[in-house]
């Protein structure tokens, strides 16, 4: 039994079958990549995991419990964090304040009306936020408004916000899109390091094959809403079906 068990999940948007019959099992502490051409339904699948969408059919079990029908904040509190394809951060707040929010959510749960504490008095939270920003190399941008960050920095901030929660399962939707080569490599190193250091499972959607092959232990190829194959990176590389459905298209 994997930490995440997706069984027979289907989702329809009007006449479009975005997800057919998806079965997927993600092993605990592994890095599982989901690849596939644009419009394959990868983001839709993640949406079904975090409570943004409710699938029409099938079941999603995380850590032995069903996530379907739960509110997004409950699912996050179960231990699932997600980095979105287009960065979702608090644009009006500073980078530092962005980091504080997941720290509070992790410590205090879904809500706590701490109206009479001051933020500097919350030493452990402040230190944790600062340490995480240092880990992702953003300590010099701590007082910048998140909206004024570059695209790559926004992604890194969002990733840091998810990581600081120490989720059991981290979902990454094209985390290196829009990043420069050097930043991409830094991100790979960061994710590797985190995977080695902590008990964390990652499901990663990625277009950059360099990223996929340097991180993933297993790969699922999704095409038109259904998984084509699931295998190790070595086997996927030369798989004829994959070449046809995915690699063939993008490499031309």
């Amino acid at each position: 039994m994997g930490i995440l068990e997706i069984k027979g999940v289907g989702k329809r948007f009007g006449g479009l079958q975005a997800l057919g019959d998806v079965n997927l099992s993600v092993e605990e502490n592994s890095v599982h990549a989901i690849i596939g051409p644009n419009g394959a339904g990868k983001s839709t699948l993640l949406n079904c995991l975090i409570g943004k969408l409710i699938p029409d059919t099938g079941s999603v079990m995380f850590d032995g419990q069903s996530v379907l029908g739960r509110a997004p904040h409950e699912i996050n509190q179960m231990g699932i964090s997600r980095v979105f394809q287009t960065p979702e951060i608090f644009g009006d707040l500073t980078v530092f304040e962005n980091m504080l929010i997941p720290c509070f959510a992790k410590r205090d749960g879904a809500y706590r009306l701490h109206a009479f504490e001051t933020i500097p008095a919350e030493k452990e939270i402040v230190e944790k936020a600062e340490a995480m920003l240092e880990d992702v190399n953003m300590q010099d941008k701590i007082h910048m408004h998140a909206a004024s960050l570059s695209r790559g920095d926004k992604r890194r901030l969002e990733m840091a916000m998810c990581l600081v929660q120490e989720p059991k399962l981290l979902l990454l939707d094209e985390p290196t899109a829009g990043m420069a080569r050097a930043d991409t490599n830094n991100t790979i190193d960061l994710l590797k390091e985190i995977n080695a250091k902590r008990d964390i499972t990652m499901a990663i959607i990625e277009h950059d094959m360099h990223v996929v092959f340097s991180l993933a232990e297993r790969i699922t190829v999704l095409a038109q809403g259904t998984p084509l194959v699931e295998d190790t990176p070595e086997n996927i590389k030369g798989h004829p079906k994959v070449m046809e459905a995915y690699l063939g298209q993008t490499q031309q």
Binding site: P72, H73, S81, E88, F90, D92, P102, F104
Partner: peptide, 13 residues
């Protein structure tokens, strides 16, 4: 005010 979606996906109600 800034991003209620992100807030919810960060585990806050």
């Amino acid at each position: 005010k800034s991003n209620q979606q992100r807030m919810n996906y960060t585990g806050l109600n």
